[in-house]
């Protein structure tokens, strides 16, 4: 009897539509987040993450609508990230039916926002999203852990040590850490296991590993490195129809519990 490793598909949503495209023959409208949420629920997803990449705040209202429609029809946990600045956005997302909000840039800019949100709603509602990349081994920009926090999808370095940042955020009260490797992201060569190990060594909260998944065999090593959950986007969107089940089979065969 123990907790199952969570497998989490992530959908990028722009003005209420799924972007980056999704390749499912069985959907009438592959751009509709609600239809996709249903499909992933049926396929055995343990949780869903929406990343709101909407640029304009006017279009953000559409995101709230999509969250509300999804939460009204799909009864598994839903995390929404993108554009979360403080207590106000989190409150709105929860009222729409989201269970958790993830925060990234706003927390880097002003770490106190973590304390404010978790004091208000409890730790369990807040996921810290960390976009980490390796710093050059010999340059002056090297951080103590060798990993640096980036913002703007990895395009902008901050000089902040990513492992130290995860530890600080956990101390401040985040309930979970979504650890995304910018180096591994898009490579389909597997998760950055060193990054997972380094953060696992300093935090007690659950870690969601992200970035680099290309095949079911990539998932068990991420769990062995310390991940409690695994998140992927394109592999689930463009893989074979049963790819989620294959990931769970790979985890089960490696001795991990899955739902």
């Amino acid at each position: 009897m123990s907790l199952a490793i969570r497998v989490i598909p992530c959908l990028d949503v722009d003005a209420g539509r799924v972007v980056k495209g999704v390749n499912f023959r069985d959907l009438l409208d592959a751009g509709d987040p609600v239809q996709l949420a249903h499909r992933y629920d049926r396929a055995g997803a343990d949780e869903l993450t929406f990343l709101d990449v909407t640029a304009s705040s006017g279009d953000r209202e559409t995101t709230y609508e999509v969250v509300a429609r999804t939460a009204g029809e799909v009864f598994i946990p839903l995390t929404v990230g993108g554009g979360v600045r403080g207590v106000g956005e989190v409150d709105k997302l929860l009222r729409c039916g989201a269970d958790k909000a993830s925060i990234n840039t706003a927390a880097v800019a002003r770490p106190d926002v973590i304390d404010e949100i978790t004091r208000h709603f409890g730790s369990q509602v807040l996921v810290l999203s960390v976009d980490a990349r390796r710093t050059p081994a010999d340059g002056s920009s090297r951080t103590a852990s060798g990993f640096e926090v980036t913002t703007h999808g990895g395009r902008q370095g901050t000089g902040i040590d990513a492992v130290e940042w995860a530890r600080e955020a956990a101390d401040r009260g985040v309930g979970e850490i979504l650890l995304n490797s910018i180096d591994a992201d898009g490579t389909k060569a597997g998760f950055d296991l060193e990054l997972i190990r380094a953060v696992r060594a300093v935090v007690r909260v659950p870690i969601i590993a992200s970035g680099g998944a290309g095949e079911p065999g990539h998932f068990p090593p991420a769990v062995a490195a310390g991940a409690d959950a695994v998140l992927a986007a394109s592999m689930f969107h463009f893989g074979p129809d049963n790819v989620l089940a294959e990931v769970k089979t790979a985890l089960r065969e490696a001795g991990y519990e899955v739902r």
Partner: peptide, 13 residues
């Protein structure tokens, strides 16, 4: 427990 919060799908007795 080593990891807290307890977050996810668990069995029941």
């Amino acid at each position: 427990a080593p990891v807290v919060p307890h977050m996810g799908w668990n069995t029941v007795d």
